[in-house]
């Protein structure tokens, strides 16, 4: 497969998100957040994973896109906040998400709002053949 440009990846991601979340194309901007702006729910992540796998012919393992189990691990989360070890783990697990802002005030409940359309695009790019 020929290497895909970032805009090609974005367009396909946009289609995936429109189909999975029932939103309009113009809502799916690179900056839009999945759970905040596009009203995704947790089951939608699985829908998105299935659709990304098909659309890009890639395999995505469990918790690869959304590391749910990090956020339920008492070693990584204490008192509703992600611990420094937890932040380090997240940086390792989801390098495609910019965690700098979150690290300053790492409330678990704000974590879901980090995921933007651009993050999904970056994630897909890491999965595509170079």
């Amino acid at each position: 497969m020929a290497t895909m440009s970032q805009s090609e990846v974005f367009e396909k991601v946009q289609t995936v998100l429109c189909d999975a979340l029932g939103v309009d194309e113009d809502e799916v901007t690179p900056e839009a957040t999945l759970f905040g702006d596009l009203n995704a729910e947790s089951i939608d992540m699985l829908d998105i994973v299935f659709r990304l796998e098909k659309s890009f012919d890639i395999k995505i393992s469990r918790n690869e896109l959304f590391p749910e189990e990090v956020l339920t691990n008492p070693e990584y989360v204490q008192g509703g906040k992600v611990t420094p070890t937890g932040i380090a783990e997240l940086r390792k697990r989801i390098p495609f998400v910019n965690l700098d802002g979150f690290a300053a005030n790492p409330n678990v409940k704000d974590f879901a709002n980090l995921f933007s359309v651009q993050d999904i695009v970056r994630f897909v790019e890491t999965k595509l053949p170079k």
Partner: peptide, 10 residues
């Protein structure tokens, strides 16, 4: 079944 894995199915 379109898709099925450990987490769920479509």
């Amino acid at each position: 079944i379109n898709d099925i894995n450990d987490t769920g199915a479509a």
